[in-house]
């Protein structure tokens, strides 16, 4: 804008062609000032809370000390990344992240699809509604409550130990949450318990779009229930399954950290620590901001690549579910 107060520059540039588009834009902006006022404040909010932190990535290349000003920080290049990639515990953390995400992905998909198929076969609609409502419940409770429940269920006096001892599998109770080798299983089981009902919503909605005449035709051909589920309902769900699977592969590094943090402890950390807990431990507990930022940055960049590829694959398959 300042340029236009300088007549020399204005004449030398020949202002007519360029500002026309810009002037039109400004004119429309003025006409739509109510919409602008209703949306631009949130753009500012977005800039401060989502884009300014990206600037903080620079701390990954510094030896950041909280008491120093930004200009006084010592620049150390890629040293933090070198440290990460030579650190053996970092590879264990990557392994944990991938394993836990994969378990969640595979178990989550299989159980939700099976449950949706079985719910769809229920004949009594009232019973079906009640089961669905109850199955959504664990999705809404917090991970703190879920962890509290899991801790109780798996305690010495908890139902799992009691049942296993009653049927003679165990002689004495096992401290499930104190043994690292059980952690992945417990986590997978808890995640299924919490979200299996919720995850059926999208499949059940997809099932309602399947043409009923297909079922009638199959019935006349003498197909039984399992055959109809296998060769009509499941293929009908295939597009949704493929898209959701691809989208979830994009989130493979985002294993979450609440369940790991709340259910894990010193005895299981070899199995329960993932990338986000690594960031939390170094960053918040030990105030090593630079190393934690480097690890966080690694995570964001890798997930971003995963997500974008997932999205473009989904688009190629003709179903852009994510916008």
């Amino acid at each position: 804008m300042e340029n236009y107060t300088e007549p020399v520059i204005q004449t030398s540039r020949g202002p007519k062609a360029e500002p026309a588009g810009f002037k039109l834009f400004l004119k429309r902006l003025m006409q739509q000032r109510a919409l602008v006022l209703m949306s631009v404040p949130f753009l500012l909010w977005l800039f401060i809370f989502k884009y300014v932190p990206l600037w903080g990535w620079l701390t990954a290349f510094q030896n950041y000390k909280p008491y120093k000003k930004f200009s006084e920080q010592e620049w150390i290049g890629f040293d933090q990344f070198n440290f990460l990639f030579t650190d053996e515990s970092f590879y264990r953390i990557l392994r944990n992240t991938f394993v836990m995400s994969s378990i969640k992905l595979v178990l989550g998909f299989v159980t939700a699809i099976v449950l949706a198929l079985l719910l769809n076969e229920l004949r009594n609609i009232f019973f079906k509604r009640v089961v669905q409502t109850i199955s959504y419940l664990p999705h809404f409770i917090s991970w703190v409550v879920a962890a509290s429940i899991v801790t109780t269920v798996l305690s010495n006096e908890g139902i799992i130990n009691v049942l296993l001892m009653k049927i003679g599998v165990l002689d004495s109770p096992i401290l499930w949450l104190a043994k690292g080798e059980y952690f992945w299983g417990i986590l997978g089981g808890t995640e299924v318990w919490k979200d299996v009902g919720w995850n059926t919503i999208i499949y059940l909605a997809a099932i309602t779009t399947i043409d009923p005449s297909q079922y009638e035709a199959a019935e006349i051909d003498g197909a039984n229930r399992l055959q109809r589920m296998w060769s009509i309902t499941l293929p009908g769900l295939k597009p949704v399954i493929v898209v959701l699977l691809i989208m979830n592969l994009g989130y493979i590094l985002e294993a979450g950290f609440e369940p790991q943090y709340l259910l894990g402890n010193g005895m299981t950390s070899d199995y329960s620590d993932n990338l986000e807990i690594f960031v939390l431990k170094y960053g918040i507990e030990e105030s090593n901001f630079s190393l934690a930022t480097a690890a966080g940055m690694f995570k964001t960049v890798v997930s971003c690549v995963f997500l974008i590829s997932a999205n473009s694959i989904a688009k190629k398959l003709g179903e852009s579910r994510l916008y």
Binding site: I48, F49, K50, V52, P53, L54, W55, G56, W57, T59, E276, V279, L280, G283, I284, F289, A292, T293, G296, M297, K299, T300
Partner: peptide, 9 residues
Amino acid sequence: GGLIPGFLL
């Protein structure tokens, strides 16, 4: 930005 830059903000 992630956890740490968010916290610093």
